[in-house]
């Protein structure tokens, strides 16, 4: 109990996006915080996932935006529960699903890597499509 609480506190203290690996827990946290979910499906052997993780998702502007608007669920497709695979029809990586936890609906999906500037523009579009007031 102490470790998740400490982890959450530290993430918030450092202004970093909260990354979780359990979908159901992430839905609860997102509902509580009034945020949408960004479900990031990746694979260790995919160079485009490497690209996203090392240059895009760690970009300070991207990280700040994600931290402000989303709870992130990171899922390794090689070790993924079947329920998630069926629910989101994962066909490749990197595959990102934006999910409204309150309505239980997919807002948008994105397949493939993007450059940081393009990714922020996409995140802003998705925010506008969602039920969040401030984007």
């Amino acid at each position: 109990m102490l470790i998740p609480v400490l982890s959450l506190t530290l993430s918030l203290a450092f202004g970093q996006a909260l990354w979780l690996s359990d979908f159901d827990k992430a839905v609860d946290v997102a509902k509580r915080e009034g945020k949408n979910l960004m479900i990031y499906f990746s694979s260790d052997h995919c160079p485009y996932c490497w690209q996203m993780e090392n240059y895009v998702l760690v970009d300070p502007d991207v990280e700040r935006y994600i931290s402000d608007k989303f709870i992130v669920v990171s899922v390794d497709v090689d070790d993924m529960p079947e329920s998630l695979e069926e629910k989101f029809n994962v066909f490749g990586t990197p595959y990102i699903v934006f999910y409204d936890p309150k309505r239980g609906k997919v807002i948008s999906e994105l397949f493939g890597s993007r450059e940081a500037d393009d990714f922020i523009a996409i995140l802003k579009q998705i925010c506008k499509k969602s039920n969040l007031r401030r984007c």
Binding site: I3, L10, Q16, V58, D59, P60, E63
Partner: peptide
């Protein structure tokens, strides 16, 4: 040790974040 590991990602993230 556990506390150190939890704190460390914050610092690592910040150093990588400096463009």
């Amino acid at each position: 040790g556990a506390a150190t590991l939890l704190v460390a990602p914050g610092f690592v993230g910040q150093s990588f974040a400096a463009k």
